[in-house]
Design a protein around this nucleic acid. Structure first.
Length: 759
DNA sequence: GAGCACTGC
C-alpha cells in the first residue's frame, strides 16, 4: 500500500493515491524503497511518460536521449550496480573512457536514494570547473529538467543550484572541501561520488580521507569513488571498512577504438627533434587523420610549430603530388581562448581537387591530456615528458621540472588517438623504458606540494593529529612540519598546534595563509583596500604579456606602470589604472596586459571583499600616497617575513634569510636599485634560482612586525645575522642615547637617507 | 636578461 512507503508520505493525499493500481498510475516511483531499488524498476520508471522527479510529462527529446543512454556500457550493468549499491556503504568503481559513468551513475544513485523526498542531495565532484558545468548541463537534459533546478552545479564564482529543489549536484572537489570546513559531517548529502579519483588532486585526496572517517560516523552516507584506471585496488583497500577487507569493485568496460602503439628501437637523445621528425614521417606516409603532439611548455611548443611548418612547406614544394598541406596549431593554457579555439578548425583542404589531403597537427602541453578533447585525432606522438610541480620542503620551494610521465599518463595520451576511429600512438622511447622506467601512476599532488594551505584547512576541519591522518598517500613529515611552522609563525596556530581565532578567519579565505594574513592585518596599516587588490593580483596568472616579436614594446609599456619601490606596488598600480580606464580591453591590449587575468583579478577581489566584510575586516585607505606605499610594504612583512632575502656583496646576489639560498632578482623585477633587504612572493628555479615579485623593505620593519621570526639570537651565523645585529645595536644605542638625554634622531633612519623615487 | 604544466577555493 502507498501508505507503507515512507517516501510517498511527503506527497499530498491526491498524489499518494488510494490503492496500488491507482498510485502506480499517478506516482512514477511507486514501490521504490530507498536504497532497495532494483534495475528493473528503474528501467520501467525511465520508460514512463511522466518525469518521476518533477511529475511533468516527459519530452520527445528525453526519449531520444534515453535511446542513446541505453547504449552506454554502464547502462547494461544497471542491475549489478543497484545490487552493489544497496548492499554496501562504499563502492569503488572503474569505468574507462566512454563507459558513461560520469553522467549515468549519479542518476542511478538518485533513483535509489530518492534524495528529493527527504531534502538531501547527491553530489558528484569533478577536478575541473568546465567538467562540472558541462556534465551538469548534459544530465539536466537527460533528466528532462532545467539546469539549476533539480540538477545543478556549484563551482567557485557560480552557484547554479536551487536550495530545496536541487537534488543532484555536480561540483568541483575544492568546493566540496570548502563546504566540509563549515559542515564536517556534510549532512546535506545522502551520497557523495568522487569522480576522476585517479587524478589524485589535492582536494580529492583530502576528501577521500575525510569521507573515510565520516563513513564511520554517518552510517547513512554512501560513497562512490570513481576512477578511470586499473589502480582501483589501492582505493578498494583504502576504503575497506574493516581490517583486511576491501571495498567492492564495480567495473564497467569503456567504449573506445583500438590504438596501436609503436616504440622507438633506441632511446632518442633529443625528444623535440625526434618529435618533429615523427610528425613529418606520419604526414608523408600515413593515412589521413590529424596528429596530436605532446610537448612540455609554451616556448618548446612555439619553437616546434615554427620548425614543423618550415619543414612541411619544404616537403610540399619538393613533392606536391604526394604531400598535402600541413597546418600546425599550438595549444597551452596561457593562450587566449580565441587562439585555443583554433584546435577545432578543420584541417586544410587539398590544394587541387584530386591532390593529397591536408592534415592538422596540434602541438600541446598536458592540457590536451585531460582538460581539452580534440575530435578527429588519429595519431598521437608522445615523447614521454611533461612539466610537473615538485616541492622541496627543505628549502620550501615549489618548482616546475620537466619529468618523465607515468604509464597511466602515457595510456591516457595514447587513448586520445582512438576517440573517433582506430588510431596509432608513436612513443619516442623504448618499450623496455616504458616497462621498467616509468612510474605506474603520476605522483599524487599531495606529495608534490607545499601544504601550508591544506594543513590550515585540515586543522579547521578539526583534524587534531595531522601526521596520523589517514591519507591515501601520506606526505613527507617534513612537508607537514614546514606547514605547521609557517602557520605557527603566522599565529594561525598556537604552540600546541591549535587553531587560533585569527587562523579560523584565515582559513575562510581561498588563499595561501601568507596572503590571508596580509588581508587581516592590513587595516592596522590603513591599507586594506590596497592589500585586497595586491592579494587578488597575486592569485591570478601573470598579467604581463610579452610576445616574442614585441618584447621591447612590451617592456616599455611595463616600465610606464612600474613603481620602483616594489613589484607589489606595481601590481596595485596596474589594477588601479585598469579600473581608472574603465576595464577597457583596448587599454589592456595597448599596455601589453592580459585582459583575461585582469578580469579574473576583479572577480577574485570581489569574492575576497565579501569574505572580509563577513568577518568585519575593515576596508580602509590612506590618502597620503607616500605614507600609504610605506604602510603597504610594512604590512607585506606581516605575511611574508619568511620570504626575505638580504643582499650579499655588489654582484646582485641575495641570500634568503635562514635558508641561505643564493638567489638573484628575477629579470622581470621592477626595482630600480638593489635594496639591502627585500621581500619576495616566489622563488623560481629556472636557469638559476630567482626571486620574483619583489619589494624593498627595511630591517627595522622586520624586527618590528616579525619579531619572533627575526630573533637575532636564533639566526645562523653569517652576513645576514651580522647585518641584523648592526640594526639591533644601532637601535639599542639610540635608545640609550635617548635615555641619556641626547637625541640623534632622524639621521639613524635609513628611510631619510635614501632618495625618494616616485614615478 | 627570463618564461605560466595543469587545476582548485
Amino acid at each position: 500500500m502507498a501508505g507503507d512507503n515512507p517516501y510517498l508520505a511527503h506527497l499530498p493525499p491526491h498524489q499518494r493515491g488510494v490503492g496500488p493500481s491507482n498510485a502506480a498510475a499517478k506516482e512514477p516511483l511507486y514501490g521504490f524503497m530507498p536504497r532497495k531499488v532494483k534495475g528493473e524498476q528503474v528501467r520501467k520508471a525511465m520508460e514512463q511518460d511522466i518525469n518521476p522527479f518533477t511529475k511533468q510529462p516527459l519530452s520527445a527529446q528525453y526519449k531520444k536521449i534515453l535511446e542513446v543512454r541505453k547504449k552506454l556500457p554502464v547502462y547494461a550493468k544497471m542491475d549489478e550496480f543497484f545490487q552493489m549499491f544497496s548492499e554496501n556503504q562504499i563502492i569503488v568503481m572503474v569505468g574507462e573512457t566512454g563507459s558513461g559513468k560520469t553522467t549515468q551513475i549519479p542518476q542511478f544513485v538518485a533513483y535509489s536514494d530518492l534524495p528529493h523526498t527527504r531534502g538531501k542531495l547527491v553530489a558528484c565532484t569533478q577536478p575541473r570547473r568546465v567538467a562540472a558545468m558541462s556534465v551538469a548541463k548534459r544530465v539536466a537534459d537527460e533528466m528532462d529538467v532545467q539546469l539549476g533546478r533539480q540538477v545543478g552545479y556549484s563551482i567557485r564564482f557560480e552557484d547554479m543550484t536551487e536550495p530545496g529543489t536541487t537534488f543532484l549536484k555536480y561540483m568541483t572537489d575544492g568546493m566540496l572541501l570548502r563546504e566540509a570546513m563549515n559542515d564536517p559531517d556534510l549532512t546535506r548529502y545522502s551520497t557523495i561520488i568522487l569522480d576522476e579519483a585517479h587524478e589524485r588532486t589535492l582536494a580529492t585526496d583530502i576528501l577521500m580521507g575525510l569521507l573515510k572517517s565520516l563513513a564511520k560516523r554517518r552510517s547513512d552516507l554512501k560513497i562512490i569513488v570513481m576512477s578511470a584506471t586499473l589502480d582501483a585496488l589501492k582505493f578498494q583497500k583504502y576504503f575497506g571498512l574493516a581490517t583486511d577487507t576491501a571495498a567492492p569493485l564495480f567495473k564497467v568496460p569503456g567504449r573506445t577504438h583500438p590504438v596501436e602503439v609503436f616504440y622507438t628501437q633506441e632511446p632518442e637523445p633529443d625528444y623535440v627533434e625526434a618529435a618533429i621528425r615523427t610528425v613529418l614521417m606520419i604526414h608523408r606516409a600515413e593515412e589521413p587523420g590529424d596528429i596530436l603532439l605532446f610537448l612540455t611548455g609554451e616556448e618548446e611548443i612555439e619553437d616546434a610549430c615554427r620548425k614543423i611548418k618550415l619543414e612541411a612547406d619544404d616537403l610540399v614544394n619538393q613533392d606536391p603530388d604526394s604531400v598535402g598541406p600541413l597546418m600546425c596549431i599550438p595549444l597551452y593554457s596561457s593562450l587566449p581562448p580565441s587562439q585555443q579555439q583554433r584546435i577545432f578548425d578543420p584541417p586544410p583542404t587539398a590544394r587541387t581537387p584530386d591532390g593529397p589531403p591536408g592534415r592538422k597537427v596540434v602541438v600541446s602541453t598536458n592540457i590536451a591530456e585531460t582538460s581539452l578533447t580534440i575530435d578527429g585525432i588519429v595519431y598521437v606522438v608522445d615523447p614521454g615528458f611533461s612539466k610537473q610541480k615538485v616541492y622541496n620542503p627543505r628549502i620550501r620551494v615549489e618548482s616546475l621540472l620537466v619529468s618523465p610521465i607515468s604509464k597511466a599518463s602515457a595510456q591516457q595520451r595514447a587513448g586520445r588517438a582512438g576517440r573517433t576511429r582506430p588510431g596509432k600512438c608513436f612513443r619516442l622511447y623504448t618499450e623496455k623504458d616504458f616497462m621498467s622506467e616509468l612510474e605506474e601512476q603520476t605522483y599524487p599532488e599531495i606529495l608534490r606540494s607545499n601544504l601550508s594551505n591544506t594543513v590550515l584547512e585540515l586543522v579547521k576541519l578539526g583534524i587534531k593529529d595531522l601526521v596520523r591522518f589517514d591519507y591515501v598517500d601520506a606526505p613527507a613529515p617534513e612537508t607537514l612540519m614546514r606547514a605547521l611552522e609557517l602557520l605557527n609563525y603566522l599565529a594561525a596556530l598556537d604552540d600546541e598546534g591549535n587553531l587560533t581565532p585569527l587562523g579560523a578567519i584565515m582559513a575562510e579565505f581561498p588563499l595561501d595563509p601568507q596572503l590571508s594574513k596580509l588581508l587581516i592585518v592590513s587595516p592596522e596599516f590603513k591599507c586594506s583596500n590596497e592589500m585586497l587588490t595586491i592579494t587578488s593580483m597575486m592569485s591570478v596568472p601573470n598579467v604581463w604579456i610579452r610576445p616574442a616579436n614585441q618584447r621591447r614594446e612590451a617592456d616599455a609599456a611595463k616600465q610606464m606602470l612600474t613603481v620602483p619601490d616594489g613589484d607589489h606596488l606595481t601590481l596595485l598600480n596596474v589594477y588601479n589604472q585598469y579600473v581608472l580606464n574603465k576595464h577597457d580591453k583596448n587599454w589592456a591590449w595597448t599596455n601589453y596586459l592580459s585582459q583575461r587575468a585582469l578580469m579574473q583579478a576583479d572577480n577574485v577581489r570581489a569574492q575576497l571583499q565579501r569574505t572580509m566584510e563577513k568577518f568585519d575586516v575593515d576596508l580602509v585607505s590612506l590618502s597620503d600616497e607616500r605614507k600609504l606605499y610605506i604602510n603597504i610594504r610594512q604590512a607585506l612583512v606581516c605575511g611574508f617575513f619568511m620570504q626575505v632575502a638580504h643582499k650579499e656583496g655588489e654582484k646582485g646576489n641575495y641570500l634568503t634569510v635562514k635558508d641561505n639560498q643564493v638567489v638573484a632578482l628575477h629579470p622581470s623585477c621592477g626595482l630600480d636599485s638593489q635594496p639591502e633587504w627585500v621581500i619576495f612572493n616566489e622563488f623560481v628555479l629556472t636557469t638559476r634560482p630567482y626571486i620574483r615579485t619583489v619589494s624593498d623593505v627595511k630591517a627595522e620593519w622586520l624586527l618590528d612586525y616579525a619579531t619572533n621570526y627575526f630573533d637575532v639570537a636564533s639566526f645562523p651565523d653569517g652576513e645576514t645575522k651580522r647585518a641584523l645585529q648592526r640594526v639591533v645595536n644601532k637601535r639599542a644605542g639610540k635608545a640609550a642615547a635617548r635615555l641619556d638625554g641626547g637625541s640623534r634622531e632622524g639621521s639613524a633612519d635609513p628611510r631619510d637617507k635614501k632618495k625618494r623615487k616616485k614615478q
